[in-house]
Every structure is written in C-alpha cells, then in structure tokens.
Design a protein around this nucleic acid. Sequence first.
RNA 1: GCCCCUGUAGUUCAACGGAUAGAACAGGAGUUUUCUAAUCUCCCGAUGCGGGUUCGAUUCCUGCCGGGGGCGCCA
Length: 549
Amino acid sequence: MIREQLKKAIKEAVSALSLETSEIHLEHPVDLTHGDYSTNVAMTLAKEVNKNPKELAQEIIDNLKEDKLIEKIEVAGNGFINFYLSKEFFAENLNEIIKTKDKWGSNNSLKDEKTIVEYTDPNPFKEFHIGHLMSNAIGESISRIVEFSGAEVMHANYQGDVGLHVAKAIFGKQKNPELQWGKAYAYGAQNYEDHEEEIKEINKKIYNKNDEEINNLYEDGRKSSLEHFEEIYGKLGTKFDEYFFESEASPIGKKLVEENVGKIFEESDGAVIFRGENFGLHTRVFLNSDKLPTYEAKDLALAKIKTERYGYDKSIVITANEQKEYYKVVLEAMKQIFPEFAKKTKHITHGLLRLPSGKMASRTGDVITAESLIDEVKERVLEKMKDSDITDMDKVAEKIAVGAIKYSILKQSAGKDIIFDMDKSLSFEGDSGPYLQYAHTRANAVLEKAKKENIKPSTKIPRSNLGSDLEKLLYRFPEIVERANKEFEPHYITTYLTELAGAFNSFYAKEKIVEENDTAPYKVVLTEAFTNTIKNGLWLLGIKAPERM
RNA sequence: GCCCCUGUAGUUCAACGGAUAGAACAGGAGUUUUCUAAUCUCCCGAUGCGGGUUCGAUUCCUGCCGGGGGCGCCA
C-alpha cells in the first residue's frame, strides 16, 4: 500500500540525517487542499536536535527520493510535510479498484484466523425488540469487517431458552391463550409480584419436565419464537452459522463451578460466589442458593462449548453496556479456569436505542419490536416511492427501511446510546442510509447508460481539471477498513462512505459523465470505481444496495 | 459510598496529540430543457468549568459540575 511505502521512505530520509524515530505518524489532512498525506515528524524531532521544525522538514524533504507516484512534497503550517499524490497514482488505483471488484478494500491481516462472533442474542418467549436490532447491526457489520480482513468467521447466536422469563411467559399464556408469546411474557412480567409463587412453581416444572401441559406450551413457545426470529433475520440480512442455548450451557456451567469450589469459587450464604474484589472488581453469584447456575456460570460454560464446537482463535461477544462490569467479572473467573479462553475473548458493548420517552424495557411490556419499527419505516419509504415505476417496490422499500435503521445505529461509535428520532432517521436526507443507497443507484444508472452508448472505462485521458475529490477519497478505502477492523468500529466506514457519496454527488451535479468526448471514459472509470467502493462498503455495514430506488 | 462510561453548533453525530474543530438536520438564500432533485451550491452557528503535561490538547493527567450504567442469589 502507498501508505507503507511513504512511511518507509520518510524513515529512510530521517535516518539519513542521523535521527531516530520509532513510528512515522502519517495522516490524511482534513482539508483536501493540504495534500493527500501529511506527517509531523519534523515537529516531533525538532526540539531534540534544537532546530526550527520548518527547516528540519525541508531537510527531510531534500533527502526523499523521487517517486512517480508523488507529484509534490511541501512544508506547510508549523512544520508539516505534505505529500501530493500524482495522476499516475490515481490512475493506477482506479484500475485496481475496477479490477479487484468485490475484493477491493479487503486485506489479509487476519489470514488463517478463526473468529466467532456472538451477537443479537434474543430470548425465545420474549419480544425481539429494538435493542436486539442494535446488537444485530453492530455484530453483523463487525463479522463482515473481520471476514474482509481475511479471517474465517462463524456467526453465532446465544439464546435464553430457560429461566424465569420462560415461566413468566408460560404463566401469561395460561391466563391468556390468545396472546402472542411476546405479549404473554409481558403479561407474566407485569403480574409477577402478585403471582410469584405460582410462577416459580411453573419454573420448577419446566426444569423437571413433569407436567405435560407445560411441556407442550414450552415446546410450542420455543419453536414459534425461533421461527419468528428467522423471519426477522431474513429481513435484516443476517444468517447464523450456529445457535447456542442456555439450556445446554446450564448443566455444564453448574459442573464447572462445582469442580472449582474452594479453589476459584467459595460458598457464601448458601450460594457459590466469585470474589471479584480480589481483582479490583465486585463479587458475583455463580450458583444460587438452590445450587442452580446463574447467567455467570452459563457464560463460563458457553466459552467451553464454543471452543469444543469450533476451536476459535478469537471470540467476540456483543452485548449491551449494562453487562460491561458483569462481563469483566466473568472474564476474570474464566481467566482462572481457562486462561487461554479469556485471552482470546473480546467483549464489545453497545448503548441503548433510546426514544424521547426514555429507556425501553420488556419488563413493563412497553416495547417497540424490531418488526414494528421496520414496518413503520417501510410505510414511509413506500409513501415516498408512490410515483415510482419500480416493479419489486415492496422488496426495495424493505431494503431501504432496514438500511435507514442500520445506518442510524452504525454511524456513531459503538457503546453510546442512540437517540432514535423517528422523523430524523426517516427523513432520508443527508447523513443517512438511503443517501448512500441513492448515490449508488444514480451511479448505477450512469454505468448502464455508458454501457448502452458503448463508452468503455479507461484512465488514458484524465479530465482536464486536476484530480477530483472523488479519486482523492477512493484510494483510502482499504485504510478505512483496516482501521475499522483494528478498533472494531464500523462507524469509520459509515463516515467514510458518506463523505465519498457526497463527493460523488457533487461530481455528478457538476459534470455530465456520459457524453461524446474523449474525457468520458475517464469519468466512467471514476463512476465505476465509486460504485464498486460504495457497494463493498455497504456490504461491510450489512446494508443492501438496490439497483434502483 | 465504591467502580466504569460520558459531556462538542438549537438538535443528532465526527475529528488515529496537530493546520481554519468536520457533517447532517433545523433556520436563511439559491438550484431541475442534462445520466434518478431522496441531489447540488452558499450563509448562520459549538469543545461544561478550573488547573496541569506538551512546540501543539476536543483528545492525556487532575479537581469540580451535569448525564448514563454497574455493585451477591435476574438475564
């Protein structure tokens, strides 16, 4: 990559002056008129050699070799060295983009690595709410970024098919057979305090499988919940390779904890706990006083199950922020039992999808389901499309709706709450998923027309005005992917694509691309490179790119 | 009380210790005989408060103020 070449060249130029520097810091100036790359080495080294940073910068430049990929190098500001890439570089890059197609932007940094990504994690018997949408959007995107970086990825989903919530749902269903399972759960949760004994009794019966009516309800609820979830995954464009359930983790977790009582865990008030205070954390219960495994113990078992079934090099787990401190304790306990698992595990958290009214909670039954949100957004999309002549209108509207929602989740750094303002997220103007999708369809229309008029893409004759903003952004894509992968942050890709789409839209507004002159092939190659880049970028975000909209 | 996260235009978000703190929405002014106006162009507008480290701080350290999460038998 050009970035590495530049770093190497600078390093050599610096050594030629008998100076030492550990890492060359290269960045893209925010302002495109400041060049394509910029380094601050002169400023960081100036003090120790007691020189003026600007003079030192010039000396470093004098020691740099000529390169046909670099058009000019200059000193700017207080001692920045700015590099301007040449037309040859951009032309070469455009050719590479259209040649490598769906591989453009990918890298091999995680070659031969097996990664398991656990995300979404909805609970059967409960609603699939917009919180699960957060986990799904982030997890799906991270999975794809990791895959694009060369790793083999397993998409995993861990679901709570046992526990008190199931008893609450069954209680609700017994009292109100007509309710859907999600609503039945809400009823049970709302009435838990008044019927605590009864619901706990149901929970025991589920566990012991000794009541036929409850067994039947359980099987029915589990099956219909899971089927319903599959429909939603279809809409979201997620496909899981493996499903894990608490029911299988439960006995293994219990055993793991029992084997380590007195060593890692200790008994306290009838329960089995882990003293997190010894590690700067807090105490958590792993087996309750009925000696049943808690979520903590099950998570411990899950790591074991994942390893046995898959044998990963890295395990990424995506959950809500509220589990952050909890997971630190689990990881510490895991470190004691399975040091190698703990080392390979990375916990990523996301914030809440908040509405102006406050936190969503399925406890109160006051939830917005993922489906109702998608449907509502879709309604608005269809309203906007009503004059269109597109044939598969419904499918396209769904892609746009899901894209709008995913974008609003992925546009900011993970871990923060998202204020989901219906009107803004649905406006589709600027900074939004549909903005990206729209730029893609416009570019697509241009390419179709170019094909019809038989204009072949070529970089032979560039446009007369110097390198457009578009080509100055296009070549950066692989770097953006690399950074998103290193930091597990899809939002770098979102931000980049929006900037890129803006550059394309300006280009599109200023220039007629398909026309009878000799610069048309170059403009077509730019358009094709843009289409290819935004397509790959949208794929990384898990957002579908319709051909027309 | 202790631990973790967080505070940037009116609003929702960016900024890998660097140049004039970027966008979008909202507000104001324009933009369509052209490949899709869900576009484009221009204007208006912000780093919670006080110290410190640094050639340089939105970014690192520290104190205060505000918001969120967690802290033994839920998941």
